[in-house]
Nucleic acid binder design. Structure first.
Lengths: 191, 191
DNA sequence: CTCCTAATTCATTGGCTGTTGAAGTCTACG
DNA sequence: CGTAGACTTCAACAGCCAATGAATTAGGAG
C-alpha cells in the first residue's frame, strides 16, 4: 500500500488478492471475512478488490474456483478392489486436506455453507458432482445415493473435527492411522 | 413492541427472547445473527436483550444452555450388546435432531464453531464431555479416543448433510433407513 | 515524446452492528 | 394513594461494512 497510482513491475497483484482471499475465506468463512481484511493481508487498497472482481461474492467464487476437478480424488477406482478403493479414497482425501490450497477451498466452502444458503448450495452441488457421481457407480445397491452420501458425511465430519473443532484425537492422528481406522468403514458403505 | 413501559401480566418476555435467540442462532449461527433480528422476532426492543443478558455472547451462552445432559443420548449403553448400543446411539441422535430445541442447540453450536474460535472450543468441550467420555469406556482398544471421535465425526457429518447442506439422499431418508445403514458402521468403530 | 489505458489509491456514502444512558410506564408493597 | 423498583422503549454513539466515483500514477503503443 505505497503511494497512489500504478505500481511498477508486472501486476501480479490479482493473484496476491486471490491468495489472501482463499486463505481468509478458508480460515474464517464468508461472513466473518471482510474485504478490508483481505486487502490488508494482500497489502492493497480495499477498492482494488472490487475493481478486479466487482463484488465480495464474485471474489469468493473466484477465490474458491470450485473446479476442484484436478484433485481427481476418485480417479481409477473402478479398476481396483473395493477394499483398495476405500483405502485410496480416504488417503487421497487426507492428502487434499494437507495441501494449503485445496484445504482452504474445502474449508472455505464448509465454513461458509453454515451461514449462507448460497454457499450451502455450492457445497451441495460440489458434493453431488465431485463425490456422489463418482462414487455411486461403484456401489451395487439400490440405495447407492444414500450410501455415497454417508461416505461424504463421514469425510466432512473428519474435516470438521480435524480442522474446525480441532478435536485432539483426530487432529493429532497421523494420516495412515486415520486411513486404517476409516477405510474399513468406507468399505462397508461401498460393499 | 407496543408502547413504551412495562407490559401487563407476567413477564414471560425473557423466555420469548431465549426462544427467538435459540432459533436464530440455530438457523444462521452466531455471526450472522444480529441482536436486532432476535429482538424483532421476539417482538421486543433490542436494548431489552442486553438488559437481560448483558452482552450478545452471554445471550448466546444462555440460549444454547450447553447442558444437553437431559438428552441422555448415551445412557444405559454399557448393559446391552455392542450392536444394540450402536443402533441406540444412531436412533437417539436422529431423535435429538428431530426435536426443535435440541436441534437448534446442536446446529447453533456447529454453525457458530466454524467462524468463532470461542464457539469451536464450546463444541469441542461438548463433544469431549458428552460424547467421548460416555463412548470411550465402551471401546476395548488402545485407541478408544480416536475411535470415539470418528463416531462423532460420522454423526456430525450426518447433521451437516441433513440440515445444513441439505443433501437430498440424507435429508429425505427416514430415520430408520439411516439407522440401518449407519449403525453397522458405528458398531465397527466400537468393536 | 505523447497519449491512452490499466493499475492503484483516496475520500465518501449509506447501512448495519453491539452497546449505552436516559426516560417512560406499569405492578406491588406500604 | 404513593412511591420504589422492575420492565420496557427510545434515541444516540462509535465502529465496521461493502460499494462508488473521482483522482493519481505508471507502462506501453504510436
Amino acid at each position: 500500500m505505497s503511494r497512489s497510482g500504478r505500481r511498477p513491475g508486472w501486476p501480479q497483484t490479482r493473484d496476491d488478492i486471490l491468495l489472501a482471499a482463499r486463505r481468509s475465506f478458508g480460515a474464517r468463512g464468508y461472513d466473518a471475512t471482510s474485504l478490508r481484511s483481505i486487502a490488508k493481508q494482500a497489502d492493497v487498497d480495499p477498492a482494488l478488490l472490487v475493481h478486479y472482481f466487482g463484488t465480495k461474492e464474485a471474489l469468493f467464487l473466484a477465490a474458491l474456483e470450485v473446479t476442484m476437478s484436478p484433485m481427481s480424488m476418485f480417479d481409477g477406482l473402478a479398476t481396483v478392489s473395493i477394499s483398495e478403493a476405500a483405502t485410496l479414497i480416504v488417503r487421497r482425501y487426507l492428502l487434499m486436506l494437507d495441501q494449503e490450497r485445496t484445504r482452504d477451498v474445502m474449508l472455505g466452502l464448509v465454513r461458509s455453507a453454515v451461514s449462507s444458503e448460497r454457499a450451502a448450495t455450492m457445497l451441495r452441488e460440489f458434493l453431488g458432482q465431485a463425490m456422489l457421481s463418482s462414487l455411486s457407480p461403484l456401489i451395487d445397491h439400490p440405495d447407492r445415493q444414500l450410501r455415497a452420501s454417508l461416505v461424504a458425511a463421514q469425510l466432512i465430519g473428519i474435516a470438521m473435527l480435524r480442522h474446525v473443532v480441532k478435536a485432539d484425537a483426530v487432529a493429532s492422528a497421523s494420516n495412515e492411522e486415520l486411513v486404517s481406522r476409516v477405510a474399513p468403514v468406507i468399505e462397508a458403505y461401498l460393499r
